[in-house]
């Protein structure tokens, strides 16, 4: 317990968390501090490129084994399955309609790459190794949850969801997935030699860019919470905190069954606990326009993301360390 509290305290005082908090406070205080859209997108591209490439280079160094394939499969299964759990929980805990509940559930089966990046940073800071291919697992887990959400809608409200070939292509080939997987593959191909070539760009500046990006995320989260105050009923808020913990349990089970390293288990737990706020909201706006975006965006960005960042990741690290003896 003491170790967990110390971890949490260390995490809360890390630059990335403090910059996130600064963003939230600035938003609540209605400061005119803002990060231009193009800059935010540029930082997002940088983070995806860097994390993908580093993951690929790590895989090139350690080699590809059967655990990689099984991890990808496990991620795929979890991304399909977690929305079903989230949907059931929402129907019990909240008064959300089927449409809104399905839309929210889709977000929780997908992943937050920024939460993953933050967890990677914490794992590295704790001196733990992790499997480089967890980046590929992140990419695999991004899209299937959307299909689960649409299946839920089709089951309960036939005709409510709009799905066509164009949307499917957009979901499977969205920019985040393409960049993450592409950078990962290039990292695998070029290995440590390639990493050495571009290390001054993707290793040294990484933490600083992450701080700025989390400042922006704090501003966006704070603004969203301020605007959507009326949306956040107690049951929804409780779901936003409880569901990541439940999701992390699935990630823990998968990581332990696969025999992943302690760091790998932490990352799997984080992926299962996180909720999308980039790829899935865009897909939901097309496929489920009747779903209220204030609900799912406020939950994923305003509740679950800060929870994971501040308390969740240290919790997952403590539990993973305990369970793996790492």
């Amino acid at each position: 317990m003491d170790g967990m509290l110390a971890l949490a305290a260390d995490n809360l005082l890390s630059p990335i968390i403090l910059f996130f908090a600064l963003g939230v406070l600035a938003a609540f205080a209605r400061s005119d501090l803002s990060i231009p859209e193009a800059v935010a997108k540029g930082m997002s591209i940088y983070l995806l490129f860097a994390i993908g490439f580093k993951g690929g280079a790590s895989v090139a160094d350690h080699g590809i084994d059967g655990t990689l394939i099984l991890s990808l499969l496990a991620g795929l299964v979890l991304s399909f399955a977690i929305p079903l759990v989230a949907f059931a929980l929402l129907r019990i805990m909240t008064a959300l309609s089927v449409t809104d509940a399905a839309a929210v559930a889709g977000h929780y089966g997908s992943i937050s790459i920024v939460t993953f990046v933050a967890a990677t940073s914490v794992v590295t800071g704790a001196g733990l190794d992790s499997e480089g291919y967890m980046v590929a697992v992140a990419a695999v887990m991004e899209a299937p949850a959307i299909l689960s959400a649409l299946w839920l809608i089709a089951r309960y409200d036939k005709g409510a969801a709009q799905m066509d070939a164009g949307l499917l292509r957009e979901i499977l080939l969205n920019g985040s997935i393409v960049l993450l997987v592409g950078s990962f593959v290039i990292g695998v191909i070029t290995g440590n030699e390639g990493l050495d070539l571009i290390a001054p760009f993707i290793v040294t500046p990484f933490q600083g860019v992450l701080c700025l990006f989390l400042l922006d995320m704090g501003l966006v989260a704070g603004r969203g919470l301020r605007e959507a105050r009326g949306v956040l009923k107690p049951g929804l808020f409780a779901f936003g905190v409880l569901m990541p913990v439940i999701g992390s349990c699935f990630g823990l089970a998968a990581g332990l069954l696969l025999g992943l390293s302690t760091g790998g288990v932490v990352l799997f737990m984080t992926l299962s606990a996180s909720a999308s706020y980039i790829a899935v909201p865009a897909a939901m706006r097309v496929a489920l326009p009747e779903a209220n975006p204030s609900i799912y965006l406020t939950l994923s960005l305003g509740v679950t993301f800060p929870f994971n960042l501040t308390l969740g990741i240290p919790l997952y690290l403590a539990v993973a360390t305990l369970m793996t003896g790492g």
């Binding site: 803002s34 990060i35 231009p36 859209e37 935010a40 997108k41 997002s44 922006d216 995320m217 501003l219 966006v220 603004r223 605007e227 959507a228 706020y277 980039i278 790829a279 899935v280 909201p281 865009a282 939901m284 706006r285 209220n292 975006p293 204030s294 965006l297």
Partner: peptide
């Protein structure tokens, strides 16, 4: 009716 929004800080096209 759907609330207020701004392009600042957006990284996705969901909004």
């Amino acid at each position: 009716r759907s609330g207020n929004w701004t392009r600042e800080g957006q990284v996705g096209r969901g909004q």
